[in-house]
Simulated scan of single mutants.
Amino acid sequence: MSWSRVFVARLSGVGVFDPSGDQLGRFRDAVTTLRVGRPPRVVGVVVEMQHRHRIFVPMGRLTSLEPDAIVLSSGTVNMKRFERRTHELLVLAELLDRSVTVRDSGETATVVDVGMEQNRVRDWEITRLAVRAGGRLPRRRGQLSQVAWNEVTGIGLTEPAQGTDALVSMLSDLRPADVASALQDMPDKRRLEIANALDDERLADVLQELPEDDQVSLLQSLEDERAADILEA
């Protein structure tokens, strides 16, 4: 298995292959758990198979993790649909755009990517964060920089209103069906934040790809005027 650091956002949509080179699906996210005083541990990846079926693959099943391809140890996978557990976080869906505070300077920054690598016992951990200093408005944004996970605070805190720029940008290249699948894996709060960040036409296309119950739930969460605009789009 590769020991080099990998930034998770760069893996979005990368093909996942069996040892023979046959493609099984595509990478959609990584699953992590927070730990007190230790780097967050990455326990597995979310792989999208045919028909938008998303499954969980433990990190121990990966034999190669590179920016252009992910290879599994075998072509046999557990086809149970992925469901996020309460103590788990989705790296792309939940950590991108999160506000953190740099310990040394006290400056606020926004997470735009997350770097992970193996430790000595071959567990994968989040070790670096790519952050943008300053506010979220484009005219106020600072330059990108990298910091160690323990050089910031706030990575494990849920914000009242988390930003959406980095995640929406990453989702912009996906088909509406793929965005709908991503929304289904998100907690309700994050799902609504992303929905509010999409324009009316894009959100209308995405809604059509959601199950009817999820369509109704999301529309009810929107402001009445916005929901009416979506239905007319």
Rank of each mutant, 00 (worst) to 15 (best):
M49C: 09
R191K: 14
T63G: 06
R103I: 15
T110A: 04
S74A: 09
L207H: 03
I126C: 08
L129Q: 01
R175H: 15
A166K: 00
A30K: 03
R226H: 12
Q215D: 07
R226P: 02
E107N: 10
G75S: 08
S169C: 05
R141W: 00
R28K: 12
R202T: 12
K80A: 10
M49Y: 06
E88N: 06
V57R: 00
L157T: 15
A197K: 05
D68L: 11
M116L: 12
M59Q: 11
R28H: 10
V71M: 08
S145G: 12
R28P: 00
L90H: 04
D229H: 08
I230N: 04
V42G: 00
A197W: 03
V16T: 06
D104L: 11
L219F: 08
V121G: 01
D173K: 08
T108M: 13
A148G: 13
F27G: 02
Q118H: 11
G60K: 03
F27A: 07
A9L: 14
R191Q: 15
F17T: 03
E117F: 03
I70K: 05
V8T: 07
D22G: 09
R41Q: 12
L95Y: 00
A182S: 07
R139C: 05
R10P: 00
Q50C: 02
K189N: 07
A177S: 14
S145Y: 04
F56C: 05
V111Q: 05
R202D: 11
L65N: 01
D18T: 06
V43P: 00
R61Q: 15
R85Y: 04
S20R: 10
L231C: 10
L129A: 04
R128D: 15
L96D: 01
T33F: 09
R139Q: 14
P211K: 05
F27D: 03
L137R: 11
L144C: 02
T33C: 10
E151D: 13
I230Y: 02
G15T: 07
L95F: 05
E94S: 08
R226I: 10
S105D: 11
T33W: 04
R26F: 09
L167M: 11
Q208D: 14
G21S: 06
S73W: 04
Q208N: 12
T76C: 00
G142F: 08
A133W: 07
N150Y: 13
I230E: 03
G13M: 12
Q215N: 04
G13T: 07
S73Y: 06
V111A: 02
H53R: 13
P160V: 05
P160A: 13
D205F: 02
G156N: 11
Q162G: 02
V168G: 03
A130R: 09
S74Q: 12
L183A: 03
A166Y: 01
V77G: 06
E94I: 03
K189Q: 15
G13A: 07
G134H: 08
L34C: 04
D173E: 15
R226T: 15
